[in-house]
Amino acid sequence: MIEEPYRWVEAIANRREYIEHQLAVGSPIVALSYADGVVLFTMSRERQKVFEIYDRIAMGGIGHPGDIERLRLAAIELCSTEGFARSAHDVSLRRLANYSLSPALKAAFEQVYGAPYLARLLFAELGRGDAPNLFLRLDYDGSIQTNGGNFGRTFEEWGVVAGTKAAAERMERLLREEEVTKAPLSHAVKTAALAWSAGHLPLAEDPEAKPPGREELKKHLDAQLAQAAIECAVLERSSTLPITWRPVPEAESRALLDGQP
């Protein structure tokens, strides 16, 4: 039975396979730094996928809407109570992810009799002053991947989530070639859209396959723009209020995408 160690490992592996299968169809989400903060970008046909969590924290998620909603509300509550009891300066994404969300996700994933969270989340935190922005990916098993800067990894000014590992890698490869930090919003949105296209393009999950060219990505993006809604939001450094979140209306994002470079 499952009490035996081997059976437990097998059950976890089955569960992982099941969740990966469920997440595979999710539309990718891109978050990246630009001149005035952080932009989050995705395209969807059904529901909102990018959310405000606190003054300087935003979240995007793919997976089951019920589970995403549950995690979103928990994140907002944890940040709000910390911000109320201490101060908004004490709210940090690092603590939210490491001490609260990750252990809860891991516990739910490994309790093989209970239901796991069908969710893969992307968080972005706008740095204060000169501090860099933090991008953090939190997976259904509680594992965390950040945009680095420590332990010898190159610091990245972006974060992505996608349905499959291969899709995420295609997006990362594209973003690695871009200089994003000092770019104006229009450039950042274009880059994000292209990266989204790279993650959304239905390709064989073959790591040896030739990566799609820009033309191909642009073509796929244009086809999708005709039938899906853009969802775009920014965390603005120049905001005069403590709240930095601003949803970018559909018309504005399309204008930014169409604008000349």
Partner: peptide
């Protein structure tokens, strides 16, 4: 004890959340 998220808030208002957490 298992690490747990706060109970599902749903439409709960913030004062109720604070009361639950002993912050009022």
């Amino acid at each position: 004890m298992q690490p747990a998220l706060p109970p599902a808030a749903g439409a709960e208002d913030f004062a109720a959340v604070l009361r639950r957490g002993g912050l009022l």
